[in-house]
């Protein structure tokens, strides 16, 4: 997977690159409009993560030009403006998703993977991990061919964990992924804990191993024993 990050803050793009490299992405950075256009002409990308505020131009114009010249490239908008207009306009122009700054890198990772899966849907919507299969098309999780009876939120939580394997997911990051802005941080940690507890119970009942490891005081990590 080849990704172009168009972002003028080099520290931010360095974070993204360093996080995504571990996921096996080939990640390149353009820090202004002009450079982004040059790179788009010179190389082939699967995905562009696009900041809307660029020093030498408007990200929305770049989005328009990408959708015109390279319609196969998926675009994820990253913006700190958090202006509703921009979000709607971006999605109308053909962007695949919109992520407001500041975001958790795990969230970015999950979103990119979701976009990627939507793009490459070829009958296989599953994420397989040992004895567990997660199907994004019909929201099913199977453990040894037993379908788990999960609530919507439990499914979303499990998907988030599976998409960010071998990474520490903080309780904040999970809470924000599940409830967005509505959630009050003080309560949310208990809720995350309860959901994890239920999830573990349901997986264990179906005979699955517990791959969800608690990182004390911080969050959880999905990995092999």
């Amino acid at each position: 997977m080849k990704l172009l990050v168009v972002e003028d803050h080099d520290q931010l793009s360095a974070n993204i690159r360093s996080y995504l490299n571990q996921e096996g992405y080939v990640c390149e950075v353009a820090d202004n409009y002009q450079q982004a256009v040059e790179k788009l002409y010179a190389y082939e990308y699967d995905l562009v993560a696009l900041d809307l505020m660029l020093p030498d131009g408007n990200g929305l114009d770049l989005l328009r030009s990408i959708k015109e010249n390279w319609p196969d490239i998926c675009v994820l908008i990253i913006s700190a403006k958090n202006a509703l207009d921009d979000k709607l306009q971006g999605l109308n122009l053909g962007a695949d998703d919109y992520l407001a700054k500041p975001f958790h890198l795990a969230e970015l990772n999950a979103r990119l993977k979701a976009i990627f899966r939507r793009k490459n849907q070829q009958g296989n919507d599953g994420i397989v991990f040992e004895e567990i299969t997660l199907n994004t098309a019909n929201f099913e999780v199977k453990v040894h061919d037993t379908i788990l009876d999960l609530t919507r939120k439990e499914f979303e939580l499990f998907q988030y964990l599976m998409l960010n394997q071998n990474r520490v997911l903080t309780k904040q990051s999970i809470a924000e992924h599940l409830w967005g802005d509505y959630m009050d941080t003080a309560d949310s940690f208990d809720f995350v804990y309860q959901h994890i507890k239920n999830l573990r119970k349901k997986i264990a009942e179906a005979g699955g191993s517990d791959y969800i490891h608690t990182v004390y005081g911080v969050g959880y990590k999905f990995k092999k024993q």
Partner: peptide, 13 residues
């Protein structure tokens, strides 16, 4: 938001 984003990313890394 940008510096906050950077700081949070660094901590995540």
């Amino acid at each position: 938001q940008t510096p906050l984003s950077i700081a949070r990313g660094k901590l995540e890394l």
